[in-house]
Design a protein around this nucleic acid. Structure first.
Lengths: 343, 343
DNA sequence: GTGAAAGCGCTAACAT
DNA sequence: ATGTTAGCGCTTTCAC
């Protein structure tokens, strides 16, 4: 016996001790904690009461070894600088916690790619893997399937990936923005594009440009910001506003870009909405601040979260095979940065 | 045998299969994955290669059952609306991931109190529990100790709790802000207070007010916003600016409050810094946007994170008993919202 | 309704 | 250097 254990962890109470104290078998302890097990109500009561006093809980790892369910949901994130995601992350975590599922968090910001993060997550055999903000290859999705783990893409999708998908209706959002801008008399439309690969970015552009075409508008200008950050939106808008003819309305792929656009326009001595209208996407909390009063297409976050959690519930219950993407409409929030019709 | 398993998970590859395939014992497989185990290099190589091909990894739960180390770090969060925290959360997760530790996330925003979140986290016997944004009682800290789990309070502390602490030097920050404002000629100082119980809030006030006294200033006005949100700062500042005499400088307990203050001041038709100076705390990314250009005391986030991760490393290595709080100085970032001296 | 026994996947003595 | 054995804490047959 080595004596290296000065910092030895205090042992947690285990089933055996509880069993001995109560003069019952270990199985009985186990049954007390299994809602559907056959056990005398008074026995269960007695066990649970004593367990409570001793701070005993079945070891979730030992349990999962047998049940083959970990009660863990893996979440993979990357672009957390967008304030949209923390909200989603905590919302999901909280809702999952309420149905006895806990979250392991994996990031892919630094040295790790998103696919690495997925691999890593898979080792823990989570009941579900939710991909929040990361461009994951369909290979990773396949890997998950092979490992027997169901994946949910949140607000993004991977074509042909064997996975579930919950998104805001980004195409519809783009269309509604186009309609709104055209209806309110704008004629020189422009789009500030974020991360080119992101499906959110592509779909918003798709809806926007398609609807413009349907309405007989010229194809909107498209300026690449390259990512979804404030400063990128700022720079892209500076470039955009030196085009001829100058846009009278700018639709940005998300709010962060739009706030950058707003600041760029102001810096140039122009005003919104008099000189140019700006419209974002997400409705992050800053959009409503009086310093910005940003018009934006609001993502139905609560509904997207509840839908996702419901999906998780049904998948873990084993009652779901249908991976048809769920696509939820948001709604336009009109604030000060857009010129109204008839003004 | 029940036949309820249409959706049965595909079994993951386990050590036994690998062992049989390779004609070695299960122990050999295990040894190949234990860096310090005695094993022929070529054997290890052979095992790892085949494991790679098959996608085998030791089941972390089975492993932790024996080693009594979970390689899991629990993180408890609550006030995630403050953009300061997502940054910290992902920063920590990433850094921990790099040293083979994974994060389980627990929230206490909704029905659960922070103490509940701690209890929950403890069931997973994390190697370390980091409390990020939550007011945790010292009882919960004691509970953690009894369960043998070391806790780290990140940017907050609980007096008398048996736990480690890493904070920004909030008192010093408050003092430096006071010096800066007084040196630049301000005389009617005010403080917008966030969550009253938060140690960050109290320490920033403490440093600020103490230094004011030392410099022979009148005690600053103190206005309670009640929490750390933009709108609360907005409202508190409106109240503050109707005081007589009107403050010529407002120090806000964090940036979110300060941005609210900025917007409130503008809404009243006043200008910064001409009419009133505003100064925040944190240096969140929005503070640097041209629409705000907020002067603020920057928290040394990267250093706080690396310090925390280093602490984690030493604790898990068993080489640390000393729970003296680590307190790291930040620095003042001067932007447009403060009147300079001699103007 | 309860206990005994087997075993989840793995690591850590102990042999050899 | 490798194989054998025991057992981590738990759930789940299978008896009774």
């Amino acid at each position: 016996m080595q004596n290296k254990s000065k910092t030895k962890k205090r042992e947690a109470v285990v089933a055996k001790q509880l069993a001995e104290e109560l003069g019952v078998s270990i199985s009985t302890i186990s049954r007390a904690f299994s809602p559907h097990a056959v056990i005398a109500p008074e026995t269960r009561e007695r066990v649970l009461r004593r367990a409570e006093a001793l701070g005993y809980h079945p070891n979730p790892f030992a349990r999962s070894l047998i049940t083959r369910k970990t009660s863990i949901v893996g979440i993979v994130v990357s672009d957390i600088t967008n304030p949209f995601y923390p909200e989603v992350l905590t919302g999901l975590t909280e809702a999952l916690q309420d149905i006895e599922l806990n979250v392991m968090l994996f990031t892919s910001t630094g040295t790790q790619t998103s696919d690495d993060a997925v691999s890593l997550a898979l080792r823990y055999q989570p009941d579900i893997l939710i991909v929040l903000a990361a461009t994951v290859s369909s290979k990773a999705a396949t890997q998950a399937t092979q490992a027997g783990t169901n994946m949910i893409f949140f607000n993004r999708y991977v074509p042909d990936a064997p996975a579930f998908t919950v998104t805001c209706d980004n195409v519809l959002g783009g269309r509604e923005v186009a309609d709104f801008l055209i209806d309110s008399g704008h004629r020189q439309l422009a789009f500030v594009s974020g991360l080119p690969d992101a499906t959110t970015n592509r779909d918003r552009w798709k809806g926007f440009s398609e609807r413009c075409a349907e309405r007989g508008q010229a194809n909107p200008l498209k300026e690449e910001a390259g990512c979804f950050a404030h400063d990128a939106g700022f720079a892209a808008t500076q470039r955009l506003m030196s085009c001829q003819p100058r846009p009278d309305a700018i639709f940005c792929a998300n709010d962060l870009l739009a706030l950058g656009a707003l600041n760029a326009v102001r810096k140039m001595g122009l005003r919104t909405p008099e000189d140019v209208s700006i419209i974002g996407f997400d409705d992050i909390s800053m959009a409503s601040w009086s310093s910005h009063a940003l018009t934006t297409y609001r993502q139905p976050v609560p509904k997207m979260i509840s839908t996702t959690v419901d999906l998780v519930r049904r998948i873990t219950a084993g009652s779901l095979q249908d991976t048809t993407p769920v696509c939820i409409a948001g709604d336009l929030v009109v604030r000060g940065t857009v010129r109204k019709a008839d003004e």
